[in-house]
Amino acid sequence: MSSSIELRGIEVDAILRGISLRIGAGESVAFVGRSGAGKTTSLRLINGLVKPSRGEVLIDDIPLARTDLVALRRRSGYIIQGSGLFPHRTVYDNVATVPRLLGWDEPRIKDAAGEVMSRIGMPLEKFGARYPRSLSGGEQQRVGIARAMVANPSMLLCDEPFGALDPIVRRELQETFRELRSDATIVFVTHDLAEAMRVAQRVVLFDDGRIVSDTPSADFPKQQLPLVRQFVAAASLPS
């Protein structure tokens, strides 16, 4: 199950100035742009963390205003820079967060957690009882991914998830993320174009609260827009 996402004529005070965008069920889209361009705000609109001052957000064609936000969030995965793991909970308890909120029984949670942990390369038997602080930054972020994906979310919202990691670990996690490729709709915020093109089929470029380009990933570098040229130059993509 995957969800469609639609932003319709969205304005958010001084941040977004008229955003309209449709993301089909199962699509993977990267939001790129400079800091402050509005990409994170656009992401946070999708699960209701930010309310638009004008326009509306629709998930599966239902306006967010008429949706139970808590229920919606429980079926969306959320991966954030710095992982946001609960420091007072073990790795297992962190991963079990959403299944517990959904009222799954413990054997089912254990199965799902065991499976997702092995897929991210951190077996539950070895890491389940550890606390986040005893893990490296890359490991914490892997657990963050596992926590977001354990309950098969219908969409996966990622806010600069690999931003704080060194380039090698960052590359590894991009690979892990690609291999995990669930059937969820993916929205991935990053300022790194190479990363955007690696993890998403479609790239949406934000600038100053507007969308300035929206293309399939492979076509993105072919555009002549000055801002696109800057991003391409900064990313030093393989030619």
């Binding site: 808590v70 229920a71 909120l101």
Partner: peptide, 14 residues
């Protein structure tokens, strides 16, 4: 940590 609180809300904690 605001990131931890943010994650909690986004995962669907009331």
């Amino acid at each position: 940590d605001p990131v931890v609180r943010d994650a909690g809300v986004a995962l669907g904690l009331t």
